[in-house]
Amino acid sequence: MTAAAAHPQKLSAVVFDWAGTIIDFGSCAPMGAFVKLFRQYEIDISIEDARGPMGMAKWDHIQALGRLPHVAAQWQARHGKPFTDSDVDTLYEVFTPMNAAIVADFADFIPGALEAVQQIRARGLKIGSTTGYNRPIMDIVTPIAARAGYVPDNLVCAGDLVAGRPSPLMMYRSFADLGVWPASSVVKVDDTGVGIEEGLNAGTWTVGLAVSGNGVGLPLADWQALPADRQQALRAAATEKLKASGAHFVIDSVADLLPVLDEIENRLKAGQTP
């Protein structure tokens, strides 16, 4: 490895999450599906419960929900046995078509996302993408995004590799797909803690999105209808969670990303790395 490669002077790629980052303001598509899924098995979970593991592969997400003490207790009481991985398999098979049936209704772009991507491409950077959605769900989402003009240079889905977030494997696949290195020349942009950890574990810069994604968890119209003080309280809470996950920067949405990329490149030129 050359010194220039070990200490890049500029960025080579930005890898985006999907829901809550590029599309689906508030990351709302999976929430009702998770609640409906567990209700189908006579288990009550809240939207707050459902949001907890957001960003994980959906199989892992279901497993994490089933391990919540109050959910595990309900499962034992209703079904007479502990919640096991075979139950996760069963619920996952039900969840995928359930989520796929509604995901198209939540595929609107987050304001400023397409413009940000266009400006990043104009800088000569690659655009990567990883997601907690599996291939069947993304087979619905990607054509909708493409018709609106969003076609990233790669896509790595949950289930493509042996482990999803917070492991770095989807990011490693992105490096290979995009032909970019070292990791310090790449930025991961995500609205979830495990998505930030995915980037950190891969050695990239990380940018958390506080308002547009899972942290606030509100559709755009609902967010815009809030008074400024309530918006600030929700923003602050979401920001704190992303910082606790290790995000190098936290902004409201991708619309605010370009100045952060400038700052990261300034840090690279000063010899700093993630």
Results as ranks from 00 to 15, higher is better:
98 M>Y: 01
217 G>F: 09
191 D>C: 08
217 G>R: 00
181 W>G: 15
242 L>C: 01
14 V>T: 08
223 W>D: 03
151 V>I: 15
8 P>E: 11
19 A>G: 12
68 L>T: 08
207 V>D: 02
95 F>L: 11
32 G>A: 09
13 A>H: 08
209 L>Q: 11
176 A>H: 15
190 D>W: 08
219 P>D: 04
166 P>A: 05
239 T>V: 04
171 M>E: 04
61 H>C: 11
178 L>A: 09
183 A>M: 11
267 R>M: 10
61 H>I: 13
20 G>Y: 11
49 D>G: 04
167 S>V: 00
114 L>W: 00
31 M>F: 07
144 I>T: 01
237 A>F: 03
22 I>V: 15
189 V>R: 09
79 H>V: 03
39 R>C: 01
142 T>F: 06
115 E>P: 01
225 A>P: 00
80 G>I: 07
44 D>Q: 13
211 V>K: 02
117 V>D: 06
111 P>A: 07
157 C>A: 12
56 M>A: 11
27 S>L: 13
218 L>V: 01
237 A>M: 09
165 R>L: 00
70 H>G: 06
126 K>Q: 11
143 P>W: 03
204 T>L: 08
174 S>F: 15
253 S>H: 11
118 Q>C: 09
270 A>L: 15
205 W>M: 02
72 A>Y: 10
249 F>C: 05
44 D>V: 14
88 V>R: 03
195 G>K: 06
251 I>G: 05
221 A>C: 04
105 D>P: 04
96 T>N: 13
98 M>Q: 15
17 D>I: 05
109 F>N: 10
130 T>P: 02
184 S>R: 12
64 A>D: 02
111 P>M: 12
136 P>N: 10
175 F>V: 11
133 Y>W: 05
233 A>M: 14
11 L>Y: 11
132 G>R: 06
90 T>E: 04
248 H>P: 03
